[in-house]
Simulated scan of single mutants.
Amino acid sequence: MDIDAFIAAHRQAWDRLDHLVKNRSSLTGAEVDELVDLYQRVATHLSIVRSSAGDPLLTGRLSALVARARSAVTGAHTPAWRELVRFFTVSFPVVAYRARWWWLASGLAFVAVSWAIGAWVAGNPDVQASIFTEDEITQLVEHDFADYYSENPAASFAGAVWINNAWVSALMIIYSVLLGLPIPYALYANAENVGVSGGLMASRDKLDIFFGLIMPHGLLELTAVFLAAAVGMRLGWTVIDPGPRRRVEALAEQGRAVMSVALGLVVVLFVSGLIEAFVTPSGLPTWARVGIGVLAEAVFLTYVIVFGRRALHENETGDIERAPDVAPTA
């Protein structure tokens, strides 16, 4: 084979392919088709050169060109660290931010119910007597409530708390398959527990101890639970109101977004567990312990608002790229 003639006949195609590969991020539909066609033709040229010409320089040049074109056509694998960074800067915060009104409503409803139950318990001795005996209330108020946070080694307690809170949040998300209907009841049950405990502590003038022990970790912990409840109920509502999309597409997108929240909350609840195990029972002054809880809450909310709002303005949904159940359309 005349190598010079072969180069002269096909150089233009090779140069054109090189140009398309370098500008692959801004190609039109016709240029994408041309890129695929040229990739196949140049791959054939490489095969011919390897079997006939034996020119190492030309073989190397075409091999490199075909490899870059293959990457452009088939797509390159994104490094795991970039996927991780994208998850925490886009996927998780934007899903949380998009559910902000459901999130806020869940939190306000929880606080209102807890406060109402707490006030009812604190102001009615008959209600207190129906819950515990006088000796049991004294034991709870004077010892058990505070001892709960320090009776086990901090490391094992942190692990147990993390697992328990993650399970509660997971249940909120699992309930979404039932249209989210059990979620309000689950929130009410937790609000009732908090309200009863707070009411009993308030009845013995121990409300300062109650808030001093529950706020350092409780702010972040309950915020995570409210978020899980919010996205679960939002997924259930998608069945009723899918918006402009087909219902199956809306459910698939929202379902994958819910899984993003489930994964993100693992980290949030881990931080909450560490605070509950190491800060809540510590010897720090109450203002310092509560301050750490408030700081953790502020950092988390700021993170969601800043990154979530930015991602939303960039039309991100938190869904995976090139979702398999959505066909490309022109």
Rank of each mutant, 00 (worst) to 15 (best):
A5N: 10
F6I: 05
A9Q: 12
R11M: 06
R11L: 14
W14D: 00
D15N: 09
H19L: 12
L20E: 02
G29H: 13
A30F: 05
D33R: 13
D33G: 10
D33Q: 14
L38V: 02
L38F: 01
H45A: 07
L46F: 03
I48N: 05
A53K: 00
G54Q: 07
L58N: 10
G60I: 02
R61C: 06
R61K: 08
L65C: 02
A67H: 07
A69M: 00
A69H: 01
S71I: 00
G75V: 14
A76H: 07
A76N: 09
W81C: 03
L84E: 08
L84A: 15
T89Q: 03
V90T: 05
S91I: 01
F92H: 04
F92L: 06
P93W: 07
V94E: 02
R100H: 08
A105E: 11
G107C: 13
L108R: 07
F110T: 01
V111S: 08
A112F: 02
W115M: 15
A116W: 08
I117N: 12
I117G: 01
I117L: 13
V121D: 00
A122H: 05
N124A: 12
V127D: 06
A129Y: 05
S130M: 08
D135L: 06
E136K: 12
I137G: 04
T138A: 11
H143I: 03
Y148S: 04
E151S: 13
S156H: 15
F157T: 03
V161P: 01
W162S: 15
N164M: 13
N164I: 07
S169V: 14
A170V: 11
L171G: 06
M172V: 09
M172T: 02
S176W: 09
V177Q: 07
L178R: 13
L178K: 04
L179D: 05
L181G: 01
I183A: 04
P184F: 08
P184V: 03
A186Q: 12
N190W: 08
E192W: 07
V194P: 00
G198V: 00
G199T: 03
F211K: 01
F211W: 12
G212N: 03
L213M: 09
I214P: 00
P216S: 09
G218L: 15
L219C: 01
E221F: 07
L222I: 10
L222T: 11
A224W: 03
A224P: 01
M233Y: 04
T238S: 13
G243D: 15
R247F: 04
V248E: 15
A250L: 14
A250I: 10
L251H: 11
A252T: 13
A252W: 07
E253F: 00
R256H: 10
M259K: 14
S260W: 05
L263R: 08
G264D: 08
L265M: 12
V266R: 05
L269E: 08
F270N: 06
F270E: 05
A277R: 07
V279E: 15
T280C: 05
P285A: 15
T286M: 04
W287G: 02
G293L: 02
V294A: 06
V294R: 01
A296L: 15
A298M: 12
V299N: 09
V299H: 03
F300T: 09
F300I: 04
R309S: 14
L312W: 07
H313M: 06
E314I: 14
E316R: 10
E316G: 11
T317R: 15
E321N: 10
R322T: 06
A323H: 15
A327P: 01
P328I: 10
P328C: 13
A330K: 07
